[in-house]
């Protein structure tokens, strides 16, 4: 099993997302992350899909995606040739000032930001590579993660 990131330019029509996800469902492929956003071209959207599967499964899916009428462009993004980012918002327990201090130190060393704080919790934002976020979240579990939100990854190819 491996993860592959596919970046797509798609027509900005209602139903495109349904068609895309239906295609994965039909072929029994698991999507680990899917993001949709506007892009530099009018009338088109960008989708970044991370899927898990065997090499041959992934290759089959890539061809099927290319077949969809509303898909204008398909690009395979290899991890070492792309900048990959995920955004994470966390609400972490900080029962006392000692804990709060520790959390703040970690936040700083990871390049994260405190977005809000109450007496017993802080809200943290971190935009990073998915793996780094995983590690940060693991650390925060130690203090107690009340809520976790991740946007899913987006990626851009280097020239």
């Amino acid at each position: 099993m491996q993860t592959r990131i596919i970046s797509l330019l798609v027509e900005d029509h209602p139903g495109v997302l349904t068609r895309m996800s239906g295609m994965f469902t039909m072929r029994g492929i698991n999507i680990t992350s899917l993001t949709v956003s506007p892009c530099e071209k009018n009338g088109l959207s960008r989708m970044t899909v991370a899927i898990k599967g065997t090499e041959s499964e992934l290759e089959k899916v890539r061809k099927q995606i290319s077949n969809l009428i509303e898909v204008v462009k398909v690009v395979d993004l290899k991890a070492d040739e792309a900048i990959i980012r995920d955004l994470c918002l966390l609400k972490v327990h900080t029962k006392d000032s000692g804990m709060r201090l520790e959390v703040m130190l970690l936040v700083e060393s990871y390049g994260a930001k405190i977005m809000d704080a109450t007496l017993d919790s802080v809200i943290i934002e971190l935009t990073e590579e998915p793996k780094k976020i995983d590690r940060f979240v693991d650390l925060m579990q130690h203090f107690g993660v009340k809520q976790l939100f991740r946007t899913g990854l987006t990626a851009i190819g280097r020239d």
């Binding site: 209602p14 139903g15 068609r19 239906g22 039909m26 009428i69």
Partner: peptide, 13 residues
Amino acid sequence: FTITMPVTKHNFL
């Protein structure tokens, strides 16, 4: 539209 999506090459609403 959604019912026929998987059984067509393409569909429009």
